[in-house]
Lab assay of single mutants.
Amino acid sequence: MGFKLLSKLLVYLTASIMAIASPLAFSVDSSGEYPTVSEIPVGEVRLYQIADGVWSHIATQSFDGAVYPSNGLIVRDGDELLLIDTAWGAKNTAALLAEIEKQIGLPVTRAVSTHFHDDRVGGVDVLRAAGVATYASPSTRRLAEVEGNEIPTHSLEGLSSSGDAVRFGPVELFYPGAAHSTDNLIVYVPSASVLYGGCAIYELSRTSAGNVADADLAEWPTSIERIQQHYPEAQFVIPGHGLPGGLDLLKHTTNVVKAHTNRSVVE
């Protein structure tokens, strides 16, 4: 069995187990497998329904001669939608809004960016022009300005110390501490036991640490421990890039980060 097929099978099995364990909360999309990078042309966006009122959005972007996937989250909030992270750029984010209108038909009224990198804030200006209120932590807003990236308009308070959590509509926002970046936030959907790890969490097929220019490698494993301790009931975990899975993604990420750190020390 090929690795790609095995990865998709694991996603399907995880979703099936969740649907059985929580039949009222989960209505997993039966329309197909989780979209992969090879299936999404740059400039297009796919939506994948995880649970009743919960979707991931998947886009792709060219970077350094390669094409990478990027995940975000959409959560229903009454007759409105909360968006977590842009679709990595203005063109993708405009396509995301169009796809949401086509498939869901509810307005996106608020959006949260989970850290300051372009795959999370690139497209904020498109959201703002569409009347979406954009939010991020003060740290993310400051770092985005320093980096020359787009800056969300509103500040999220109460997320300055490791372990801080605040309720934001249908989700809980959690600051686990520094990891992929010093400002990275985690998003949890309690009604569906869905954990969105953003770039602080890796997919299972990833074996290298990737972009760690703004990471705190020493603190990252401790931050992941905080996530595990705060959300032990999480059933569906979405990484910032690639295929979702279960809580095993947290341990896998820790292993990859520690291996990278150990290699760096040896070198």
Score class of each variant (00 low, 15 high):
residue 148 G to W: 06
residue 166 V to P: 05
residue 197 G to D: 00
residue 84 I to W: 00
residue 5 L to C: 12
residue 99 E to P: 02
residue 131 G to F: 15
residue 146 V to K: 13
residue 195 L to W: 00
residue 226 R to A: 10
residue 234 A to V: 05
residue 112 V to A: 13
residue 90 A to P: 10
residue 121 V to Y: 05
residue 177 G to A: 00
residue 151 I to C: 03
residue 34 Y to G: 10
residue 156 L to F: 14
residue 143 L to E: 09
residue 195 L to V: 06
residue 9 L to P: 08
residue 92 N to S: 09
residue 49 Q to E: 05
residue 148 G to L: 09
residue 6 L to D: 13
residue 77 D to N: 02
residue 40 I to Y: 03
residue 259 A to N: 14
residue 189 V to Y: 05
residue 128 R to I: 09
residue 143 L to A: 05
residue 25 A to R: 12
residue 89 G to P: 02
residue 170 P to C: 04
residue 257 V to E: 02
residue 215 A to H: 07
residue 88 W to E: 01
residue 158 G to S: 13
residue 3 F to W: 12
residue 26 F to L: 09
residue 141 R to P: 01
residue 53 G to E: 10
residue 139 S to Y: 06
residue 179 A to H: 00
residue 257 V to P: 02
residue 28 V to Q: 07
residue 133 A to G: 06
residue 80 E to T: 12
residue 227 I to Q: 01
residue 117 H to L: 00
residue 82 L to M: 12
residue 204 L to Q: 02
residue 234 A to I: 02
residue 98 A to W: 05
residue 102 K to G: 09
residue 38 S to N: 06
residue 21 A to S: 06
residue 188 Y to I: 09
residue 133 A to H: 14
residue 71 N to A: 14
residue 50 I to G: 06
residue 65 G to N: 14
residue 122 G to S: 07
residue 238 I to F: 09
residue 101 E to K: 03
residue 43 G to P: 03
residue 48 Y to L: 10
residue 157 E to G: 12
residue 183 D to Q: 00
residue 138 P to V: 13
residue 255 N to D: 14
residue 232 P to D: 14
residue 154 H to W: 09
residue 245 G to A: 04
residue 21 A to R: 08
residue 160 S to A: 11
residue 61 Q to E: 05
residue 14 T to R: 06
residue 224 I to R: 01
residue 48 Y to W: 08
residue 29 D to A: 08
residue 103 Q to A: 08
residue 5 L to K: 10
residue 106 L to N: 06
residue 37 V to Q: 13
residue 226 R to D: 15
residue 61 Q to T: 06
residue 23 P to E: 08
residue 95 A to T: 06
residue 185 L to T: 05
residue 188 Y to H: 10
residue 82 L to Y: 05
residue 265 V to A: 06
residue 47 L to C: 12
residue 252 H to E: 12
residue 86 T to M: 07
residue 125 D to C: 04
residue 84 I to C: 03
residue 127 L to Y: 02
residue 241 H to V: 01
residue 12 Y to W: 10
residue 199 C to F: 00
residue 133 A to T: 10
residue 199 C to M: 01
residue 91 K to A: 11
residue 170 P to E: 08
residue 72 G to T: 01
residue 189 V to F: 08
residue 196 Y to P: 00
residue 260 H to V: 06
residue 41 P to E: 11
residue 38 S to K: 08
residue 112 V to K: 01
residue 53 G to T: 15
residue 117 H to T: 00
residue 240 G to Y: 02
residue 21 A to Q: 11
residue 54 V to C: 05
residue 202 Y to C: 04
residue 65 G to M: 13
residue 93 T to K: 00
residue 248 D to M: 03
residue 39 E to F: 03
residue 233 E to Q: 12
residue 109 T to A: 11
residue 132 V to G: 03
residue 49 Q to P: 04
residue 247 L to N: 15
residue 103 Q to E: 08
residue 162 S to I: 05
residue 22 S to H: 14
residue 193 S to T: 06
residue 41 P to S: 13
residue 171 V to E: 00
residue 81 L to D: 00
residue 232 P to F: 02
residue 17 I to T: 04
residue 235 Q to N: 02
residue 240 G to T: 02
residue 39 E to Y: 15
residue 90 A to Q: 06
residue 191 S to W: 05
residue 77 D to T: 06
residue 234 A to C: 03
residue 62 S to I: 15
residue 121 V to Q: 15
residue 46 R to I: 15
residue 90 A to Y: 04
residue 231 Y to W: 05
residue 35 P to E: 08
residue 66 A to S: 07
residue 207 T to I: 15
residue 197 G to M: 03
residue 230 H to R: 08
residue 226 R to G: 10
residue 265 V to C: 08
residue 203 E to M: 11
residue 169 G to C: 02
residue 226 R to K: 12
residue 60 T to K: 12
residue 228 Q to P: 11
residue 84 I to M: 15
residue 44 E to I: 04
residue 159 L to K: 01
residue 24 L to E: 11
residue 94 A to V: 06
residue 35 P to Q: 14
residue 250 L to T: 14
residue 171 V to A: 08
residue 31 S to A: 13
residue 176 P to V: 03
residue 61 Q to G: 11
residue 190 P to N: 03
residue 74 I to F: 06
residue 153 T to K: 14
residue 207 T to M: 15
residue 178 A to D: 04
residue 266 V to R: 12
residue 265 V to K: 13
residue 189 V to Q: 06
residue 215 A to W: 07
residue 120 R to K: 09
residue 103 Q to L: 14
residue 264 S to Q: 15
residue 221 P to A: 08
residue 159 L to S: 05
residue 196 Y to S: 03
residue 96 L to S: 09
residue 237 V to E: 01
residue 180 H to W: 00
residue 56 S to E: 11
residue 244 P to W: 06
residue 44 E to N: 15
residue 212 V to H: 03
residue 73 L to Y: 00
residue 196 Y to M: 06
residue 147 E to W: 06
residue 229 Q to R: 08
residue 136 A to W: 10
residue 25 A to W: 10
residue 154 H to K: 14
residue 169 G to L: 02
residue 36 T to I: 12
residue 136 A to T: 13
residue 59 A to T: 13
residue 11 V to Q: 12
residue 74 I to S: 11
residue 28 V to I: 11
residue 220 W to S: 04
residue 186 I to E: 01
residue 25 A to Q: 11
residue 245 G to L: 05
residue 28 V to L: 05
residue 180 H to C: 00
residue 3 F to G: 06
residue 32 G to C: 07
residue 104 I to F: 03
residue 25 A to H: 14
residue 201 I to G: 01
residue 106 L to S: 10
residue 187 V to T: 14
residue 28 V to N: 14
residue 234 A to D: 02
residue 218 A to K: 15
residue 216 D to N: 05
residue 15 A to L: 08
residue 126 V to N: 04
residue 116 F to A: 14
residue 214 D to G: 07
residue 61 Q to P: 05
residue 127 L to D: 00
residue 132 V to L: 10
residue 220 W to R: 02
residue 126 V to C: 04
residue 53 G to C: 05
residue 50 I to F: 08
residue 67 V to T: 07
residue 123 G to T: 01
residue 158 G to V: 05
residue 161 S to R: 08
residue 112 V to T: 11
residue 67 V to S: 05
residue 13 L to W: 06
residue 11 V to N: 05
residue 109 T to I: 15
residue 250 L to F: 05
residue 142 R to E: 15
residue 141 R to H: 03
residue 120 R to V: 06
residue 34 Y to L: 11
residue 60 T to G: 10
residue 32 G to K: 14
residue 131 G to T: 15
residue 16 S to W: 04
residue 39 E to L: 04
residue 137 S to F: 15
residue 255 N to W: 14
residue 194 V to C: 04
residue 27 S to Q: 14
residue 214 D to I: 08
residue 131 G to L: 14
residue 121 V to K: 15
residue 223 S to I: 14
residue 121 V to H: 01
residue 155 S to W: 06
residue 131 G to C: 13
residue 207 T to K: 12
residue 20 I to C: 12
residue 205 S to D: 08
residue 173 L to I: 03
residue 189 V to E: 08
residue 232 P to Y: 12
residue 61 Q to M: 05
residue 140 T to M: 02
residue 43 G to I: 06
residue 165 A to K: 09
residue 181 S to L: 00
residue 84 I to D: 00
residue 192 A to C: 05
residue 110 R to S: 05
residue 244 P to D: 15
residue 167 R to A: 04
residue 167 R to S: 03
residue 218 A to N: 05
residue 31 S to Y: 02
residue 204 L to S: 13
residue 23 P to M: 00
residue 191 S to P: 03
residue 124 V to K: 13
residue 6 L to A: 08
residue 238 I to L: 06
residue 196 Y to C: 02
residue 87 A to D: 01
residue 53 G to I: 05
residue 163 G to H: 03
residue 185 L to I: 07
residue 142 R to H: 04
residue 163 G to E: 08
residue 155 S to H: 15
residue 188 Y to T: 11
residue 27 S to Y: 03
residue 43 G to R: 09
residue 144 A to H: 04
residue 253 T to A: 13
residue 267 E to M: 05
residue 84 I to Q: 00
residue 256 V to T: 10
residue 197 G to F: 00
residue 187 V to M: 01
residue 118 D to H: 10
residue 155 S to D: 11
residue 7 S to T: 14
residue 208 S to Q: 06
residue 256 V to M: 04
